[in-house]
């Protein structure tokens, strides 16, 4: 019964099926077929034997990954960075959005907003250049400032401890414009009458922000947080790679799952371990987003993603 239904539908909307076919095919080949490669995590990969010809080796890859300590390290770093970046970038974006929305000066507002959005448009390669220009030992801006005030120049590239903050700052810097646009859009859709009523009641600007703006944009904040939580095990590879590069001194504090996997791809080493890392990243991410979404759906259905 169902089959004839599909055939009937196919006949009726032949053109629509044909029109959607290229994209379906493309996504199937480029995204679905590669999923089969996840079984590599349970295999002893040999290039000449291919994904399917390589021998199985059970959970060996996972054992190596976690016994070497690397597995815990990159997992911990990935989660740490995502939480840090999540809190700082969203907080900053909300703050900026509220300030910009309440501004009266039209030109000032427009110009600053444009400039704040600018970092979104440049590649991480260029951001990497900025980072190097600021922190390099010899000609960096930081050391120039330090020297100007008579201090000793510092070699930031041998201080792993400060890199979480550097990465966090550049992440916020690059995304603040983009994220604040989302919150500004949420704020402009608040009913103006709410504010007018508050004005009549004599509320000051801070009270209005706290009692009207904040509750109104809460759904947006929650949606943004949810989207990010679903990516908690995914590092922003381009950012980490361009800011930190292949600087081995910093890896203890800066290596995330994605950079670890990528390095082994380039160097053609540790394939088993990285396949295991990649597998557990994909699967756990999926589980986390499903679980979080299910919980949210139960608590407050409107906030759920799907």
């Amino acid at each position: 019964m169902k089959k004839t239904g599909f055939l009937h539908e196919l006949k009726k909307n032949k053109a629509l099926f044909l029109m959607v076919a290229p994209a379906v095919l493309l996504v199937f080949v480029m995204s679905y077929l590669p999923m089969s490669g996840l079984i590599l995590a349970f295999k002893d990969y040999k290039f000449n034997l291919g994904v399917f010809g390589s021998p199985w080796n059970g959970l060996e890859n996972f054992r190596f990954l976690f016994q070497s300590g690397k597995g815990w390290l990159i997992t911990r770093n990935t989660i740490f960075y995502n939480l840090l970046n999540l809190v700082t970038s969203q907080f900053l974006a909300v703050f900026v959005a509220i300030l910009i929305s309440e501004m009266a000066g039209k030109v000032y507002k427009k110009v600053t907003q444009s400039v704040i959005f600018l970092p979104y448009f440049i590649s991480w390669v260029i951001v990497g250049t900025f980072v190097f220009n600021i922190f390099n030992f010899e000609t960096g801006v930081l050391n120039n400032v330090v020297k100007f005030f008579g201090g000793e120049p510092v070699n930031v590239y041998s201080m792993p401890g400060v890199w979480p903050w550097i990465i966090c700052i550049f992440n916020s810097w690059k995304w603040v414009g983009y994220n604040s646009i989302i919150y500004i859009a949420a704020i402009t859709s608040i009913d103006a009458e709410c504010y007018e009523a508050a004005d009549i009641d004599g509320a000051n600007v801070f009270q209005k922000i706290w009692y009207i703006t904040m509750p109104s944009i809460k759904p947006t904040i929650i949606t943004m947080l949810l989207l990010q939580v679903g990516r908690i095990l995914r590092g922003d590879f381009e950012m980490f790679y361009q800011i930190v590069g292949n600087n081995g001194q910093l890896f203890d504090r800066t290596d995330v799952i994605d950079t670890y996997v990528f390095r082994s791809l380039l160097q053609n080493s540790n394939f088993g371990m990285t396949a295991a890392a990649s597998f557990y990243q994909s699967v756990l991410c999926f589980v986390i987003i499903i679980v979080v979404n299910a919980i949210v759906k139960k608590v407050e259905e409107d906030y759920a993603l799907f």
Binding site: M35, V51, L265, T274, S282, F286
Partner: peptide, 26 residues
């Protein structure tokens, strides 16, 4: 069909499998 597309944002093969698939099979 929408879900067929949307699913790829929730789950993917990850860097390694994608890389190997693109190189060895495509």
């Amino acid at each position: 069909i929408s879900f067929f597309f949307y699913f790829t944002t929730l789950f993917n093969g990850g860097m390694i499998s994608t890389y190997i698939f693109y190189i060895q099979y495509l």
